[in-house]
Nucleic acid binder design. Structure first.
Lengths: 204, 204
DNA sequence: GTCTATACATCGATAGAC
DNA sequence: GTCTATCGATGTATAGAC
């Protein structure tokens, strides 16, 4: 388990920037080398190919993101607190890594294999056998805290509600004058509206 | 206003396929020519460059999609019917073009200019001055049919809920064994769960 | 309009000096 | 480890015969 050299770190840094901006196919090894202030040959010395470099960058970025995401699932069994905190944390997390959304979208469009692998790794690391959410929702239904519903669909909806504004960010900011998705004001309001909609939507 | 030749249609068809599969940068003119059963030279005869061809394909595809989407907003003022029909229609529409959705979203994260242009054109064509939804929601709030909330956030949430399963489709189908996003069973269930969550979520 | 042949640039990747 | 130089493949685009 090495820490990696300084040059390696510079390459990863530069590669991340370029891959995020241009996508895998649009990215050029020349540009990555340029931003890292080295030459192309050195890129291939450290990482064997463009594919390997991309995989390394993607895995690292996404793994950290998912790790942070799943660490933000509250420990309590109180479904109201779980939902409130998770949505707020999730929105905060995404808003502080807006570029990453594009990266992940790109990868999913390509088939989503890396993402699935990363998810599996995260599950293994945290010892999950299923979405940590799922069980809490099922329990809440059994106890009658929330109305009967399909937990899987609820989770999909919650994630969709949280993540969509950031996916559509350029479009929304272009189509709706004055809106600023990443502004503190919008995020604050968004968290309230999201939680209210979901919470009211699942009352018995 | 010509109808275009048969060859032109073949090219558009092939180009659409390849661009959707590989993205703009990943697409190769050679492959497009191959699928259209012509040679590369003819591509440049009909469309001057790869850029022009891409723009043409994207604009056409997206315009039709948005046109269909906005045509599916029900005419009635009954907010319950509006929501029920719109979500159902929207989910149906997306499920019949899942690759297009992922493509559009990726394109949006690239800057979204084409999309914004297309949106503006659609608004102009239908004579909208704002989201047709917005006014209906505002009226429903004034009449007390639904609780006070921010209409803009509601719309964002509704769209997010509908579209997200298809964005994450490859990931979901990989991570959750047995799930089939585009299957009739899932879609049917999805429509019910989505409407229930939203409708219950906005009750006074 | 459609083809073959080819120009020209750029890509990822490698060889070899230091 | 780091560089220059360059390879072979492939990309977009064009010239010119038919």
């Amino acid at each position: 388990m090495e820490l990696g050299t300084e040059t390696e770190a510079k390459i990863i840094q530069a590669a991340t920037e370029v891959f995020l901006e241009k996508g895998k196919d649009g990215a050029r090894m020349q540009e990555i080398a340029g931003r890292a202030n080295i030459n192309k040959a050195l890129l291939h010395y450290y990482f064997r190919s463009k594919d390997k470099l991309y995989e390394k960058v993607f895995r690292e970025k996404v793994f950290r993101f998912l790790d942070e995401l799943f660490s933000s699932v509250p420990q309590t069994d109180d479904i109201k607190i779980v939902l409130k905190e998770f949505t707020a944390n999730y929105i905060d997390l995404i808003s502080s890594h807006p570029e990453l959304v594009r990266f992940i979208l790109w990868e999913i469009r390509r088939g989503g294999q890396y993402m699935s692998d990363a998810l599996r790794d995260i599950f293994a690391k945290h010892g999950f056998t299923k979405f940590p959410f799922l069980e809490k929702v099922q329990n809440a239904i059994s106890e009658g805290t929330i109305r009967p519903l399909d937990p899987l669909h609820l989770i999909i909806s919650v994630i969709g509600i949280c993540v969509y504004p950031f996916i559509a960010q350029p479009l929304l900011e272009n189509a709706i004058p004055g809106i600023q998705i990443s502004s503190e004001g919008f995020l604050q309001k968004r968290k309230e509206e999201v939680f209210n909609l979901i919470w009211e939507g699942i009352q018995p």
